[in-house]
Design a binder for these strands. Structure first.
Lengths: 215, 215
DNA sequence: CGAAATCCTTGATTCAGATCAACACGCCAA
DNA sequence: TTGGCGTGTTGATCTGAATCAAGGATTTCG
């Protein structure tokens, strides 16, 4: 049913999808690429409040304006629905509202997990936490839980990582270097990461190593 | 309809409502009193991830276990529904799922707002942010937006505030003293707060003074 | 090709908030 | 009444991350 009202939009790396406060007349989900949700204070301090990976949902049924800036970090393809038809559909199809509730609850858990990271973890733990999340998401996306080292590319610049973690880009760079020196990760170039021992990484993140629900 | 399956539960100040990871066979909402949602790391570092004030919802349809510790800070009365009947009701009544989605989206916004506080604000701004939220909630609850100074009691100990703000209790104490010295707030005893100029407080919080959506 | 822009790294110094420590106040129970 | 306990304040010192500063490596573009 949804197929009949969907359409696709493409965004280039660096392009802003929506500005906070703008009217937003569609909802959608990320098909490919990576986008970020950010808040900015008047003086320029910036905090990323969400990372949108493929399959993540964007937009709020029942809200007329965007609450945050949405920026494409890489080239992004989004599958969109005009808001009005989507909401009509939602009213007629309870299942959709329930699915959406499910997804929103997941997002809420992820946000709260992140509050612990921002409020209580050290810089090194923050970096390790971010790397675990990306590694996990990447592994889930690319294939079943094959054993052995995890390999992935960082989808974010050092500055974007800093904005996610509540750090400066210099501290991010230093801590990544430190994790590399200590053998927790292996770097090829600036973005290509190998994690020889995922449990070691989780340990550095300060997470319960038996697998939390970082989502 | 919901009235027919509801029941009440009382909790004393300090009592734990649910432990993270425990099976949770009810959902509910706070009727009176204040409870907190907290996460703890193995080494004891604690982060509050939510503040439950009267009317706030607790629990997750579709989840079997609690994700966080829920602790009553004051005496609390909760209105509860057993989970199974509640979920049945939800399936039969689309309106409930939509209302719940609405509330969850609000919580998500609040959590993201808090990520900015935790990640980017100074200690003083953090305290001011917390005070504004409490002041606003309190004003909304007690009466229409009467002009003039806002007056309320802090429902949290210094330590609980520290856990919410990602600070130590000493820093909380110092910053409250500083705000008091600077006339941003007036303190009687340790808990009774008067805010002579709410815009001044918002300014100290670093928020857009024309009223953001702190929830 | 060289110039400019991005993105990243590393070093030196500073500083906000943590940590360590002492003490004040109110309250309750022995 | 005294001692213990929970709560809060304040001072002295320490430290992790911010800030300031200088380049290096790639890519882009004129």
């Amino acid at each position: 049913m949804l197929d009949q009202i969907k359409y696709y939009r493409n965004f280039e790396a660096g392009q802003t999808v929506i500005w906070a406060g703008d009217k937003m007349d569609f909802v959608g989900s990320v098909v490919s690429g990576i986008a970020t949700l950010t808040q900015t204070m008047e003086d320029g301090r910036t905090q990323m409040v969400g990372l949108l990976l493929p399959s993540d949902f964007v937009g709020r049924p029942g809200r007329r304006t965007a609450a945050y800036d949405v920026v494409a970090t890489t080239d992004v393809v989004m599958c969109c629905f005009r808001k009005q038809p989507f909401e009509d559909m939602m009213n007629r199809t309870p299942h959709i509202a329930q699915r959406l509730l499910e997804m929103t609850l997941d997002e809420l858990d992820a946000a709260r997990e992140w509050m612990l990271v921002l409020g209580r973890k050290t810089a090194r733990e923050k970096i390790a936490s971010l790397l675990s999340i990306i590694a996990r998401r990447d592994a889930a996306l690319n294939m079943g839980g094959k054993e052995g080292p995890m390999v992935f590319d960082l989808p974010l610049t050092r500055e974007a990582m800093a904005d996610y973690l509540g750090l400066t880009l210099e501290t991010v760079s230093r801590q990544i270097s430190a994790l590399k020196k200590d053998g927790v990760i292996v770097l090829e170039g600036k973005r290509h990461v190998t994690v020889p021992d995922f449990n070691r990484l989780l340990d550095e993140a300060g997470d319960d190593s038996d697998g939390g629900l970082l989502a």
